[in-house]
Write a protein that binds this DNA or RNA. Structure first.
Length: 287
DNA sequence: CCCACGACCTGTGGGC
DNA sequence: TGCCCACAGGTCGTGG
């Protein structure tokens, strides 16, 4: 689920419960997620006060008052629940689309406000680490990372340099976090469609107008998704209170065989596979 | 350096 | 209904 907009939504949901709070109890119910939890994970967190949560690409950053920052990557299936004594809620409303299975509750944080925040991750592609805050940007995980797509450093010049001389298809290159940090499979398909750029087109062959359109489309698609609650799957409670979800409306993602939504375009959305992942695009208006 | 592919892990949905 | 296979939103390491 989580690409940049979903991670941002989760960050916003967690921040009111963690920023300024002290962690009074931390439980790691297993020694590893995708990677082993760092040495002394529980001890280094217990008793620490958390600062304002930030985000870099698809990572949530929780700075501690001890010089470390807790970094959290949600992988494919990472999610949180928040219990404040009453009902359990979930930041990023996609997170409770299906009930969280207690057997995948891997890390639990309790704050001095009496709030319990639990990390669930069925596939365990997510991970957490503790990194020295002062040298965070130089850490191997972040050192080579490209600009934030919604920040000032991501612009047409930057994209032109990243695309220069590259034979790789536009889509797989945009998924490279060194080019731009935070795009994932869904929103890259959506941005390419909005910019009318073929995902298969070798990056070096994309002209300046299309590059400019791509920069704008990437920003628009991500900003719109954040505004919509970051949701690919969104909870709602129907009149009888039963939780359910609906699929967010994408222009091309998941729409193989459907009519292209571009006005006056007669194309049919095609599914292909690039670098082992599904690509959806319109072969008529995306060139 | 560039690029593609398999691996990691579990759940789910579609087809038969 | 039940079973099996294909596929899933993300990286990471390897090897051509």
């Amino acid at each position: 689920m989580p690409e940049l907009p979903e991670v941002e939504t989760v960050r916003r949901g967690l921040d009111p419960h963690l920023a300024g709070a002290r962690l009074v109890r931390v439980v790691a119910r297993r020694p590893d997620l995708r990677f082993p939890l760092p040495d002394g994970f529980v001890q280094r967190l217990t008793g620490a006060r958390v600062g304002s949560l930030a985000r870099r690409a698809k990572y949530i950053l929780a700075p501690l008052d001890r010089g470390d920052t807790l970094i959290i990557h949600l992988g494919m299936t990472g999610r949180f629940t928040i219990e404040t004594g009453g009902e359990a809620t979930a930041p990023g409303d996609f997170a409770l689309a299906a009930p969280a299975d207690p057997k995948h509750a891997h890390v639990v944080f309790e704050t001095d406000a009496g709030t319990t925040i639990t990390y669930f991750d069925a596939r365990r592609f997510g991970y957490m680490d503790l990194i020295d805050t002062a040298t965070l940007d130089a850490h191997p995980r972040f050192r080579d990372m490209g600009p934030e797509p919604l920040g000032p450093d991501f612009d047409v010049d930057r994209l032109a340099r990243a695309f220069a001389g590259r034979r790789q298809g536009a889509k797989t290159l945009l998924l490279d976090q060194r080019v731009v940090a935070g795009l994932g499979n869904i929103y890259v398909c959506e941005a390419l469609h909005r910019a009318r750029v073929s995902p298969l087109k070798p990056a070096a062959e994309i002209g300046p107008r299309k590059r400019a359109a791509l920069v704008a489309a990437i920003r628009d698609v991500l900003a719109a998704a954040i505004a919509a609650g970051g949701s690919t799957l969104r909870d709602f409670a129907s009149a009888d209170g039963v939780m359910g979800y609906f699929q967010h409306d994408f222009a091309v993602y998941g729409r193989e065989g459907e009519a292209c939504p571009t006005p006056r375009c007669r194309g049919i959305i095609l599914r292909t596979v690039q670098a082992g992942r599904s690509t959806f695009h319109c072969p008529v208006c995306q060139t």
